[in-house]
Amino acid sequence: MHAAQSKADPVFRARGLGKVYRMGEVEVHALRGVDLDLYPGEFVVLLGASGSGKSTLLNILGGLDAPTSGRVECQGHVLTDASDDALTRFRRESVGFVFQFYNLIPSLSARENVALVTEIARDPMTPEAALALVGLEQRMDHFPSQLSGGEQQRVAIARAIAKRPAVLLCDEPTGALDSRTGVVVLEALERTNRETGALTVVITHNAVIAEMADRVIRLSDGQVAEEHRNASKRPPRELHW
C-alpha cells in the first residue's frame, strides 16, 4: 500500500505560506504563497538552490519559525497561531531534526547523546535500539571525536528518531560529507523512514538525492516550481555525485 494514498490524512497541510524578512529598508520574500500536503510514511525531497526558500519552509514546518502569512496544520493542529509553549511541545514530541552539522555534545558518548532525547520523550526507543537502526551498535560508547563525520551524522539521526517523531526534518544532512559517506547516511535515513513510518523530509540542493524519494518538490524563488512522484526509487547505494 502506498504511503501517500488520497484517503490518508496529510501530516502537514500548508496553504498560502509567505515569509518576508525585513533587513533595514529592504524586504526579502523567502516564501511566496506555498501550498503543500505531506503524507505519513513518505520520503520527500525538497530540492532547490541556495536562497530558494527551502530552509525557511522546513523551519516553519518544524515550528522553529512562523510564516508572515498563510496557515500550517500538523496532524490537524494549527501551528500558525499556536503559543510558544504549544510549539515547544510540538517540537519536543512530534518532530525530529537533523541538520548539516551534527550538534553532538563532545563530552558525551553516542549512547549518552541519544539518551538526552529519550529521557524527555513520552514513548522513546532505547538509545541502543535507535543506534542499531542506523548501524552503530558497535560504536555506542565512542565519543564524537572518535567517530567519523558520517558516523556522527548517524548518531544525530538516531537522536532525532529515538523519540518516535511523526516527522523527521533533515536540512542538507549530507552537505558536509563526501559522496561515499553521504550515501551511508542516506541509507540510514531510508531505513529509519521504512522501519519507523515517520514522514521524512530532506532538503538539499543536490538533485541526485531526489532519485531516492517517493516525491520531489522543487522550490524556486520562494515558490513551488515543480512537483513529481518518482515511478521507481533508486536505492542510495546507486547514487553518486
Rank of each mutant, 00 (worst) to 15 (best):
A4G: 15
A4T: 05
P10D: 11
V11N: 01
V11P: 00
V11G: 01
R13G: 00
R13N: 05
L17V: 10
G18K: 07
G18L: 01
G18E: 14
V20G: 00
V20M: 07
M23H: 09
G24E: 02
E25H: 12
V26N: 13
V28R: 08
R32G: 12
G33I: 08
D35P: 01
L36H: 05
L38S: 07
L38A: 09
G41D: 07
G41L: 12
E42A: 09
V44G: 04
V45I: 15
L46G: 03
G48D: 11
K54P: 08
L57K: 11
L57F: 13
L58E: 00
L61Y: 01
G63C: 15
D65M: 13
S69Y: 06
G70R: 08
E73L: 14
C74S: 15
C74R: 01
Q75H: 04
T80E: 03
D81S: 15
A82N: 07
A86F: 04
A86H: 07
A86R: 12
L87W: 14
L87S: 06
F90A: 15
F90T: 11
R91G: 10
S94V: 09
F99P: 04
F101Q: 11
F101L: 07
N103C: 03
L104V: 08
L104I: 06
S107D: 13
L108E: 03
S109R: 05
R111D: 03
N113R: 05
V114F: 13
V114Y: 08
L116Y: 00
T118Y: 05
I120T: 13
D123S: 15
T126I: 07
T126H: 04
P127K: 03
L136V: 07
E137T: 08
F143H: 14
P144C: 10
S145V: 14
Q146N: 12
S148I: 13
R154Q: 06
V155S: 04
I161S: 01
I161H: 02
A162H: 02
R164W: 04
R164K: 15
D171Y: 12
P173Y: 14
T174E: 03
G175K: 09
D178Y: 02
S179V: 07
S179A: 14
S179E: 09
R180V: 14
T181G: 03
V183T: 15
V185S: 04
A188L: 03
A198P: 02
A198L: 09
L199K: 02
T200I: 02
V202W: 06
I203A: 08
I203F: 04
H205M: 11
N206S: 12
I209W: 08
I209Y: 06
A210K: 07
E211A: 13
A213R: 02
R215E: 08
V216Y: 01
R218A: 10
D221M: 06
G222M: 04
G222W: 00
Q223E: 15
A225F: 11
E226V: 05
H228I: 06
H228C: 05
R229F: 11
K233V: 09
K233D: 00
R234M: 15
P235M: 08
